[in-house]
């Protein structure tokens, strides 16, 4: 005889699960909360309870040229990575969906590999390439690294949406006299549009945040995470809390923007497919 739960047990089980979920969320959000609270703490980082609410750290931050320079660099890197990621990720998704060529399986695995590979391996292997090719490290090398590592994001997102595009849609278009180019822009592209936007947003955020690959490929100009990293080594300051809070707010805004888009496109694509492996 197996276990049989009574209605009472069952409700208790549900309550236990809910309590558990609340604790887990507390764990997930504690650091974020601490970050935000202490970005306005007059006494600096740490020290409980926080007191002396202040915006001093923010005003210090706004006068900090090095930080803003690195923010600018990060945005340039992220935008360029989005371009590379889409320019290669979309064709790669099309190729995986509709072409057959020798080594296709290996190709698929290779494209996806950087997403699940510790950044240090991607970073170091490219570092060796650049050194052998005598390429000086700069933001350009960081862009190459990010772009290459994040092609997989565009590929997974777009591939998933292509899987939902019935082949007959494109056949109907060809049948009606549209050539491949017209068919791509009139049928395939509108279908992929939302997944492309999702991929662009994801690549942008992942690149803005990326540190492990940048760590090895950076030249003189710092990206924001590396700038923060450099300061962390010198010691903790609430300025970092302030910039982190700003990044967090921007991330939230990005998610919201994405949701507005998604509601308009009604379930055309699921976000964060990148986290699921390709079928």
């Amino acid at each position: 005889m197996g276990l049989v739960m009574t209605q009472n047990d069952w409700n208790r089980g549900r309550i236990a699960l809910a309590v558990y979920a609340a604790l887990l969320f507390a764990f997930l959000y504690l650091p974020v909360l601490v970050l935000v609270v202490y970005s306005c703490n007059g006494q600096g980082v740490g020290g409980f309870p926080p007191h002396n609410f202040t915006l001093r750290w923010y005003s210090l931050l706004f006068q900090d040229d090095a930080i803003w320079r690195s923010v600018g660099n990060s945005i340039v890197v992220a935008l360029a990575s989005v371009l590379i990621g889409l320019a290669l990720g979309i064709p790669a998704a099309l190729a995986l969906d509709r072409a057959s060529f020798p080594g296709k399986r290996a190709f698929r695995r290779l494209v996806l590999l950087p997403l699940v590979l510790p950044g240090i391996i991607t970073g170091l292997s490219l570092l060796m390439l650049f050194r052998e090719a005598d390429v000086k490290l700069s933001l350009a090398t960081v862009i190459l690294g990010h772009g290459t590592a994040l092609i997989s994001v565009a590929t997974t997102e777009v591939y998933a949406s292509l899987q939902r595009l019935e082949r007959v849609q494109e056949e109907a278009s060809l049948d009606l006299g549209a050539n491949y180019w017209q068919t791509f822009w009139r049928i395939t592209f509108p279908h992929m549009r939302l997944s492309i936007i999702a991929a662009a947003l994801l690549i942008f955020t992942l690149s803005i945040d990326e540190i492990a690959v940048s760590f090895f490929l950076i030249g003189r100009e710092n990206t924001l995470p590396l700038e923060i990293w450099g300061r962390l080594r010198r010691g903790i300051t609430p300025e970092i809390n302030a910039i982190s809070t700003i990044i967090f707010v921007f991330s939230l805004l990005t998610i919201l923007a994405w949701y507005r888009l998604r509601i308009r496109g009604k379930g055309e694509t699921e976000p964060f497919q990148a986290a699921e492996p390709l079928p």
């Binding site: 974020v32 970050l35 540190i211 995470p225 923060i228 962390l232 982190s244 990044i247 991330s251």
Partner: peptide, 10 residues
């Protein structure tokens, strides 16, 4: 979506 570095730092 919150920076890896930021969370480690927190």
């Amino acid at each position: 979506w919150v920076s890896y570095l930021v969370r480690a730092y927190a």
